[in-house]
Computed example of a mutant assay.
Amino acid sequence: MKHVPMIGALALAASLTFVVPSPAVADAYDNPPIGGALLGGRGVIVDQTARKLPKTEASAFVVADADTGEVLAAKNPHGRFLPASTLKALTALTLIPKLDRKKMVKPSQDACNQEGSAVGLTPRKIYTVDDLFRALMMVSGNDAAVALAEANGGLPKTLADMNAEARRIQAMDTVAKTPNGLDKPGQSSSAYDLALIARAGLADPAFRKYVGTKVADFPAPKGHYQIANHNRLLGRYPGMLGVKNGWTSKALGSFIGAARRDGHTIIVTVMRHEGSFWPEVQDLLDWGFAARGRTAAVGTLVGPIPAAKPTRPVGGPPTPAPAVSRPADAAGESSSAGAAGVAVIGVAALGGLAWLGYGLRRRRSRGRGSAQV
């Protein structure tokens, strides 16, 4: 590893905004959160030499480069919140590889009776898995989510699969209690995890197709009708790929967005937004494209956990795969912007020096509350 002069190291550290976690956060230096020690903070985290961040009313957000994995800016990235329908992105990520898209499905009456946003299923065997994935990701069909879970062997199995997939991609703040994101105690995700889910999903051509489809025909007992994507930026924001919006009265607004320009993809996630987040997401995407390659990363979107290959010693049991530690909560579901216990410090403080090596490496490597929608 090339040595960096101390003066240069200090200069780089001085350009970053360092956040000291509150006592509710685990020691960020002995047990840093996934993605980097700075991401344990609840305030805005960004390179102070970067252009000014746009304003957003979201309680948490992440702006990340999907190609390099660099987190360019964030606010309370590991704070846990109700995800609303953005959880459907995990449902799709989990089930797309498991289900035959040509399989015909007859939804149960329970699936058809799901409250909130729905595509309007009937208990007839007229839908393919492919149809249901379009309904899930285009019109946020709560009924389609349950029908897909039934096609996968039922709700308990599907929820176990979803939580296993979350662990596999290291989305450790995420707990799925429903396949559709309708509010349920104990269900959670974070802005960081939603970015991980989006990045993993966009690597799958089928996922990209579902989230990027603007209009499609959908089966009905007599013929078809047309459904349209709920993502208001699709077809309006240059390069918009998808991914998923969500809202409940408890979760408030949440969104996962991704756009691609000049061969590069930027991901923006927001959680717990009280108003209309669409213009703010556009501004954050614009900022991300302008900052990419010019702004020091404050963290990274980690990759999936490699598949374990247990070894069997002669005459002994298989050696277990190493355990993956779960990061401490950055905030509870009731977290909000401006939580107490956060301070911004300069280069002379311990937080900056503790994360200094990470920043240098990144520099060198860079070249139910109610109805839901």
Rank of each mutant, 00 (worst) to 15 (best):
E115Q: 08
S117K: 10
A348V: 00
V46L: 07
G332P: 02
I256N: 05
A60D: 12
N113D: 11
T122P: 00
A331F: 06
A216P: 05
V139I: 04
G257S: 14
A135Y: 04
V298L: 06
V25H: 09
A321Y: 14
K52R: 11
I266K: 00
D27Q: 00
Y210I: 06
I227E: 10
M1A: 12
L39N: 02
P221N: 08
K157I: 03
P32A: 03
I34W: 00
K244T: 12
I169P: 12
G41W: 05
D217K: 13
P185G: 00
A144C: 10
L39F: 03
P107K: 09
K102A: 15
A328L: 08
R261S: 00
A147E: 10
K184I: 12
A171F: 08
L38T: 13
H3Y: 00
V298A: 03
W355P: 00
G246Y: 01
H273I: 01
G369H: 03
S59G: 12
G341H: 01
V146G: 06
T128H: 01
E274D: 08
W247L: 10
K250I: 07
E57A: 15
V268F: 04
W355C: 03
L121F: 13
G253K: 02
G239H: 10
G275F: 06
A66R: 10
P23F: 05
V139N: 04
R368W: 07
G338I: 07
A11M: 03
S59I: 05
K184V: 14
L252G: 06
T174D: 08
S188C: 10
V347R: 11
R42D: 11
R366N: 13
D161V: 02
K88Y: 09
A147C: 15
L72I: 13
I345F: 05
D286T: 02
M137N: 05
D217S: 15
G181W: 11
Y192C: 03
R236E: 15
S249D: 15
S335Y: 13
D329I: 11
A9M: 12
P320Q: 05
P322A: 14
I7W: 12
R80D: 04
D47H: 02
E115N: 05
N180G: 09
R364V: 01
N31F: 11
A176L: 08
G181R: 10
I197L: 02
V215S: 08
F81K: 01
P310N: 10
V270P: 02
L12V: 15
D183F: 04
G253M: 00
N113P: 00
F277N: 02
